[in-house]
Design a protein around this nucleic acid. Structure first.
Lengths: 214, 214
DNA sequence: AGCGCACATGAGCTTTTGCTCATATTTTAG
DNA sequence: CTAAAATATGAGCAAAAGCTCATGTGCGCT
């Protein structure tokens, strides 16, 4: 019963929240949240952006659409959560470079992390990169993203680094090179990570002015 | 009068055409087509994907929505036409590398073309790159795209090229490097093309095993 | 002049998709 | 055991966007 629906007036200027609505407190709620995020990942992997809708995500997750919206204010929030998750995974690996003493080995580890991360779920990684640059989502993803950048910056700033240029710029460029090559490789469905890694090393060594080892 | 609308049954499997519907024969029609393409470019440049709709494109072009659909079977077809146009522009510049005798100069020209192309309308170029990899549009864009790749391949295959690896692979990698760096640079709204060009050269020289000039 | 075809128009229909809310179920706490 | 809080459900609304078609206008040709 009850009255007809009051039209939802949304002021055009109003920004949509991208953070989860309620932090889940019970474990079943946490499961729901995870199921939703993983479902989103699987849909992206299988069908790309085609059919990447909230209803489809909820269905695939085996939860109702209402539940999805209980924890995420909108579709983009799900994507952001997914990006955060993947980003955290990458960070966990990247950060190990700090404990590698040899400069060259540390750089190699960074490159390896990037390539391995993209090769784990290539299509997903590539599509998330696209989404990340398409949406102005930055704020929410920043923490993890910044931590990664800072790690790379730390490596490039070591006393035994031969690099003498603008280091912050170098971090961004190195990222751009790796991302560019690795995404392109994923797009044409290459599978040989080792082979790709060698090529990325060539480009980055060249950029950083490091001599290649024969 | 006449019956109620017969619901347009579209089989899910049916592919949508991406090529223009009718080739315009009169000059006013050609003008319409151009206006639509340029309107699409301007909307992408100004507002990004937000509001990039067929209705908006038609309105901005100063033509009716019906006219748009007379020449383009759908929104994506407009995007494809726009990409083709930009791609042709790039090709026209890239192809000049063939007549540059010195190998290093030729490579530099290629890099310069790529950077200049992206700097001309940075946001547009970047968004089109995104669309290009997001949509499975390849078939229509292939001709121009292939011609560009072949030019690069020709340069890398010259007898005085020191590069000894898999050349087709190198073409793709060089593209990936340039595109990655240049898109990233556009994203953070850099404006110094010359500066960027130098950095791209470092990476590509490194990849190709060319010595940098001091 | 006048016929025919290319071109142009835009109201409005269909589809798609994001999202809400009234209600039901489960869990936790006292 | 019971009440309250957390969680789950899904029919269905609203908005946005894609697209059609009946109709009108202008251009070229004989």
């Amino acid at each position: 019963m009850c009255a007809t629906r009051i039209p939802t007036k949304v002021k055009p200027g109003r920004r949509k929240r991208l953070d989860p609505r309620k932090p889940p407190t019970q474990s079943r709620a946490a499961e729901t949240v995870n199921a939703v995020i993983e479902a989103a990942a699987r849909i992206l992997e299988r069908n790309g952006f085609e059919g990447y809708t909230t209803n489809a995500i909820a269905e695939r997750a085996g939860v109702s659409i209402g539940s999805l919206y209980q924890y995420f204010p909108g579709k983009e929030a799900v994507t952001v959560a997914l990006i955060e998750r993947e980003c955290a995974l990458l960070l966990a690996d990247v950060i190990k470079a700090d404990s590698i003493v040899d400069y060259r080995d540390a750089v190699n580890h960074l490159i390896h992390s990037a390539v391995a991360h993209q090769m784990r779920r290539p299509r997903l990684a590539r599509l998330l990169d696209l989404e990340e640059s398409r949406l102005p989502i930055r704020p929410r993803i920043r923490p993890a993203s910044d931590a990664i950048h800072e790690t790379v910056l730390r490596i490039l700033s070591r006393s035994d680094s031969p690099y003498r240029g603008n280091r912050k710029e170098a971090v961004l460029d190195v990222f751009a090179i790796a991302k560019g090559m690795v995404d392109a490789s994923g797009e044409r469905e290459e599978t040989d990570a080792h082979q790709l890694e060698k090529r990325v090393r060539r480009a980055i060594y060249g950029y950083l002015g490091m001599r290649s080892v024969r």
